[in-house]
Each structure stands twice: as C-alpha cells, then as structure tokens.
Simulated scan of single mutants.
Amino acid sequence: MNEAGVDWESLYRSQTTGWERGELNPAFSHWSDTFKQLAASGSASVIVPGCGRSPEPIVFADYGYRVTALDIAESAIAFQERALGVAQSRHCVEHADVCEWRPEQHADLVYEQTCLCAINPDKRAAYAEALYRWLKPGGVLAALFMQTSIKDGPPFHCAIDEMYELFPDQRWEWGSDTVTSPHPVAEISELGILLTRR
C-alpha cells in the first residue's frame, strides 16, 4: 500500500486497472523523435517511475536506453521483468518508494506518466526533489500532468499553476510544446510537457 492508501497489488490481481491503456500514451508517440535523439549517444538511461504494466519501458529499451523501471506493486514488477528480460540484460526493475529511492547514476531522461497523480499532494515536494536528484543537469523530465475533475484521488488533479510551483524556473526549463492525451477513464486527460533540469 502506498502513501495514498491504495493497495495497488490487489487492484492488479483483481484486474481493476481502468487506468491501463494497453498501448503507448499518445504523448509518448508525440515525443518519440525527441526520445530517439536523446538515445543517439548509445549510453542514455531512462527511469520510469510507477511503470505498471505499460509498454513504454519496452519501447525505451528498443530505442537503446538502459531502462530502470520502478513500481510498488509486485505484479507490475514481474510483468516488466519478463518484458525487459532483466536477467539477461542491462535493464533493471525495482520495488521502490519513489520518494526515497536513489539511482546509482544520474539519468538522461525520466518518463513521469503515473506517479505524481497517485501520490498524496503532501508528498509531492519530496517526489519533485527525487526527480530533480535522479536527473543529470540537462536531463529531461517528460511529465504527464493529470487533469481531472475528480474531487479526491488518486488520481489527484495536477493543476498547472501548482506544477509551476512544484517545478520552479530556478531548477527547470519548461518546454513550450505541450500535448494533451485523453485518458481511458472518462473526463480525465493528461497534459504533457518536457522539462529540462538546470
């Protein structure tokens, strides 16, 4: 169970996973050229917190990234371990509290698709600090900010003015190219923005 009081593993086991798309997030496809360019050095690394059973870690691996996928649910971890073939590869899947976990090396990219909206708002500052810590200077945070009219969460609404405060200009350069992804759950969408760590 995480800080939001949700037993994610039970939801996976009962197939109560309405948030799962079963395909790439439209924002991922929108950013695919940028992701490929970042991977062009041949030694790029990406961290995918709250990876769930999403296909994005697998595609990042196909692009040439060294992938670290994090989740709190054992079913999600087992899925990504099988998909990435971690026993025979340079990829890593870890059971982790994302606010406390520390990588061995700074990453080039963090793909933030589901974690922020699943964390209680009073834990957001700690998570934002972790994201900053994970990335190397010049590294990219691909953030998908949840937009929802649901009063309580998760998912918790990520109001854009609050996101500007959480990821301030002193630490982050905000990109101008935004993309909106419809969500499998009605009346919910994600606002995608690329931020660069200063």
Rank of each mutant, 00 (worst) to 15 (best):
T68M: 09
P49W: 00
E56C: 05
L38T: 10
Y63D: 12
I72K: 06
D62G: 11
F60I: 00
L38Y: 02
G64F: 02
C51Q: 08
L38E: 11
Q37K: 15
E56A: 11
R66N: 08
D71P: 10
Y63C: 07
S43I: 04
P55Y: 01
V67I: 00
S54Y: 00
S45A: 14
V46N: 10
L70E: 03
S54V: 03
L38I: 15
S43F: 02
A39P: 14
V48H: 10
G52N: 11
I58Q: 14
A73R: 08
Y65G: 07
L38R: 14
A39G: 11
A73S: 10
P55K: 01
S41Y: 01
G42N: 10
D62C: 04
A40N: 09
F60G: 09
P57L: 09
D71A: 05
K36T: 12
A69L: 04
D33P: 01
Y65F: 15
S41T: 15
S43C: 09
A39T: 11
I47A: 07
K36I: 07
I72P: 00
G52Y: 02
V48W: 07
P49V: 01
G50Y: 00
G52T: 09
A40V: 08
T34N: 11
K36M: 13
D62R: 14
P49F: 01
S43P: 02
S54M: 01
Y63H: 13
A44M: 04
A39Q: 12
R53Q: 14
F60M: 12
S43M: 05
S43E: 14
T34K: 13
S41R: 13
C51N: 09
G50C: 09
V59N: 03
V48L: 11
V48G: 11
S41G: 14
D33V: 10
V59Q: 13
R66D: 04
E56K: 02
F35S: 04
S41C: 14
E74Q: 15
A40Y: 00
I58K: 13
L70S: 08
S45G: 11
S54G: 13
D33C: 02
A73P: 10
T68Y: 04
P55T: 00
T68Q: 06
R53P: 02
K36H: 12
G52D: 03
G50M: 00
A39W: 11
I58H: 11
V67T: 03
G50R: 03
A69K: 05
V46I: 15
S45M: 08
V67C: 01
K36E: 15
A44L: 02
A61V: 10
A44C: 05
R53W: 00
Y63K: 06
E74Y: 07
R66L: 03
S41V: 05
Y65M: 05
A73N: 06
P55G: 02
G42T: 10
K36G: 12
P55L: 12
A39E: 10
I72W: 00
T68V: 14
A40G: 05
S41P: 07
V59K: 10
C51T: 09
